[in-house]
Design a protein around this nucleic acid. Structure first.
Lengths: 224, 224
DNA sequence: GCGCGTGTTCACATTGAGTTTACGTCCACC
DNA sequence: GGTGGACGTAAACTCAATGTGAACACGCGC
């Protein structure tokens, strides 16, 4: 899932943009000005930034410039001013695209997708825990720097658990998520996969372990 | 130096665009229609394609679609029609940007530069892995210093895999990227090409191997 | 036409991920 | 310390996914 930060001082525009982006499957963060935006970027991973030019505090140009100093996110500028000189300024400051208000929301979505496609972060999803690192998009897994290959079910199970260390997942929940809600098979199957994961990743070596919560399910925990 | 192919049936527009791009330091190729464009792309390395939508022979939409089947160049569409529906169509077909005539030449230059900046970050035209080296622009391949020639499909497949060693590509993904999203053929075809690549490059000799990830697809890995 | 290179399809063999089975172990509760 | 349900796991099983040799299809240069 791609995460977009929308920076605009007008709440109505933010709402409009948010609605369309969400509908298109993006996760959306918001900021009302440049200062908030920088704070949000400190706190959260983001794949794309959409910036309004006219803002109080710290305007879009300046924000764009500062973003470039520090990050490598693609930036889409959004503004009421459509003069060629303004457009050029945006590009010079390092923005990747430029859209003039009033804009067609679907065009904004399309441009956002095009940027992300180029940028190749469109669907990257990773988790890490202890020495474990997993990427759901590429099915890459490394433990302690070593690449390993996991069978699909084991991958899905471990990815699920490792995504929320400390959280207990009910057996039913895991089965539903990994095998689908219409699973008719044996109860023991889940145990077998857990067992194989434990065998594959002895807890002493990798900084995590899968714990059984009797009567409930499983959780993954870091182990010091 | 970046090379841009400008595809437009209007010589005046081509001249205008060429002048500005050259001034900005690009090398410029020209084509008057889609057919010429495809021929030019066969013959020459190109970094960016600027396409007019309205052209005789083979129009911009169709050209864009065909480009996407085969290459991974960024594409900037150029047209007199500015309706949102048209813009969206361009993006769906895989274009990366869209500019409406009449346009400000300097904005075209700026957008071209922005696309190339992203493109450079995101992609590379050559890959190497173990003793393998491949150049997508010229279709050159060498293993252990020896030049070899690969059939097109095998080249595309190997290039794709070798571009991200360790990453598992889903069968669907590979088929879509290499055969196009409307592939109707046999499932086994992909396997056959993988099989032929394995036969051609025995893993003991070349420092890489193609691994099957059952239920998912394939990945290429270095082998020590 | 003929040979050659490439891509596709087919038929059959092989494999290994996922599941089930069977039985052992653990833990809570009485 | 006995009992029953919940869980662990080695081993057997199963079948869809894959590997591959061979045949076929197509275009191209001679």
């Amino acid at each position: 899932m791609s995460r977009v930060l929308v920076v605009d001082d007008d709440p109505h525009i933010r709402e409009l943009v948010r609605a369309f982006l969400r509908h298109a499957g993006f996760e959306v963060d918001e900021a009302a000005n440049g200062v908030e935006a920088l704070a949000a970027l400190e706190a959260e991973r983001v794949d794309l930034v959409i910036v309004d030019v006219m803002m109080p505090e710290l305007d879009g140009w300046e924000l764009c410039r500062r973003l470039r100093e520090r990050y490598d996110y693609p930036v889409l500028m959004l503004t009421a001013r459509g003069e060629p000189a303004d457009r050029l300024r945006g590009f010079e400051l390092g923005s990747d695209d430029y859209l003039v208000k009033p804009f067609e929301p679907l065009e904004l979505v399309a441009r956002a997708q095009a940027l992300l496609r180029r940028y190749r972060i469109a669907t990257s999803q990773t988790v890490s825990l202890g020495t474990l690192w997993m990427d759901r998009r590429t099915f890459e897994v490394t433990v302690g720097g070593e690449a390993v290959t996991l069978p699909r079910k084991e991958f899905e199970l471990l990815f699920k658990l490792a995504g929320s260390p400390g959280r207990t997942y009910a057996r039913d929940q895991l089965i539903e998520d990994i095998w689908g809600s219409d699973y008719q098979g044996n109860e023991r199957t889940l145990d077998v996969h857990v067992s194989r994961l434990r065998e594959r990743f002895p807890e002493e070596q990798h900084g995590f372990r899968i714990r059984t919560i009797r009567g409930l399910g499983y959780r993954i925990e870091p182990v010091p």
